Simulated scan of single mutants.
Amino acid sequence: MSNLSDLRKSYEQGELDESRAAGEPLQQFKQWLEHALASEVPEPNAMTLATVGADGRPSTRIVLIKAYDARGLVWFTNYDSRKGQELALHPFAALQFHWVELERVVRIEGRVERVSAEESDEYFDSRPLDSRLGAWASPQSQVIASRAVLVANAAKAAVQHGLKPPRPPHWGGFRLQPDRWEFWQGRKSRLHDRLRYRLDEGRWIRERLAP
């Protein structure tokens, strides 16, 4: 059996220096995301989403970024799911990308809101048919008796909606509006590079953090 305490990795692929980092976090994120895409790392669009429940307990799950711009980062989900209910109660969240092969992490924090119905409709209509039917079939985060429930629900949705299922009213997008970003680049001897951007009265302040 492997001894976890003996596992070691020397991070030596890159550096993150203020002289070459972007002045604003969105541009830095764009550069790093495009690099991850070009490098063909596994699922470069996957990000961990952290929310907080009514009891103060945090929970995390993986979601996929589907759009980003100056307004924020967008993903889509079931509004009745655990994350949807937690965001309705506490509309703040944290996101994290971990591009292992590039030895990079991006962390983002901010307020979350639902995207417009038009944005949700546009994205929903672009999805494969099976995925659109799946949005009707899955009572996300609820207890079900077996997988047969999902299969039966999907078959029922296919009969009911055919080839053009509409977007379910409980399904749509969220947008996180960042007020903090952190970019982490692994470095040798655990002297990692960490640059934080925080929003202060409409202006981004860039700071180096100790690793």
Results as ranks from 00 to 15, higher is better:
162 G>V: 05
159 V>Q: 15
191 L>Q: 12
163 L>H: 03
152 A>S: 15
175 R>Y: 08
149 V>T: 13
162 G>Q: 07
178 P>A: 04
155 A>W: 01
155 A>R: 14
156 K>V: 05
192 H>P: 02
166 P>E: 09
156 K>Q: 15
170 H>G: 05
177 Q>P: 00
185 Q>H: 06
169 P>H: 13
186 G>A: 11
177 Q>Y: 00
172 G>N: 01
179 D>A: 03
182 E>D: 05
151 V>T: 15
150 L>D: 02
156 K>C: 10
186 G>L: 02
154 A>Q: 14
187 R>V: 12
172 G>M: 06
151 V>C: 04
188 K>E: 15
190 R>K: 13
189 S>Q: 14
153 N>K: 07
190 R>C: 10
152 A>I: 07
172 G>S: 09
153 N>D: 08
192 H>M: 11
178 P>S: 05
176 L>M: 07
183 F>P: 00
154 A>E: 14
166 P>A: 11
164 K>Y: 06
166 P>Y: 09
182 E>V: 08
171 W>G: 06
159 V>R: 14
153 N>S: 14
163 L>I: 06
186 G>F: 05
188 K>N: 13
149 V>C: 06
148 A>V: 06
175 R>K: 12
189 S>R: 13
177 Q>I: 14
161 H>K: 03
169 P>L: 13
176 L>Y: 02
154 A>P: 00
162 G>H: 09
153 N>M: 06
181 W>Q: 03
181 W>A: 01
189 S>G: 01
153 N>C: 02
182 E>W: 02
169 P>G: 11
181 W>D: 03
179 D>C: 09
180 R>S: 11
162 G>N: 06
181 W>T: 07
186 G>M: 07
173 G>R: 01
152 A>M: 11
177 Q>V: 12
169 P>M: 11
157 A>N: 04
187 R>M: 13
149 V>D: 11
160 Q>M: 13
185 Q>P: 05
164 K>W: 00
179 D>G: 05
191 L>R: 10
192 H>V: 09
185 Q>W: 07
178 P>K: 02
155 A>E: 15
154 A>G: 00
165 P>D: 09
187 R>I: 11
174 F>I: 04
181 W>N: 00
183 F>L: 09
165 P>F: 04
174 F>W: 10
172 G>T: 01
165 P>N: 07
172 G>R: 03
149 V>R: 09
171 W>K: 03
149 V>W: 04
191 L>H: 09
162 G>L: 08
152 A>Q: 15
182 E>G: 03
152 A>K: 15
181 W>I: 01
188 K>P: 05
184 W>K: 03
170 H>R: 08
178 P>C: 07
165 P>L: 02
155 A>L: 10
156 K>L: 12
177 Q>C: 13
149 V>N: 08
152 A>G: 01
166 P>M: 12
189 S>Y: 12
183 F>Y: 08
162 G>E: 02
168 P>K: 04
158 A>L: 10
161 H>N: 08
166 P>K: 06
184 W>N: 02
174 F>K: 01
163 L>N: 11
171 W>A: 03
161 H>G: 02
164 K>D: 11
192 H>W: 10
191 L>D: 04
155 A>T: 08
190 R>Y: 08
179 D>W: 08
161 H>T: 00
153 N>F: 09
159 V>G: 12
179 D>F: 08
159 V>T: 12
171 W>S: 07
150 L>N: 05
151 V>K: 15
161 H>M: 02
174 F>D: 00
158 A>D: 06
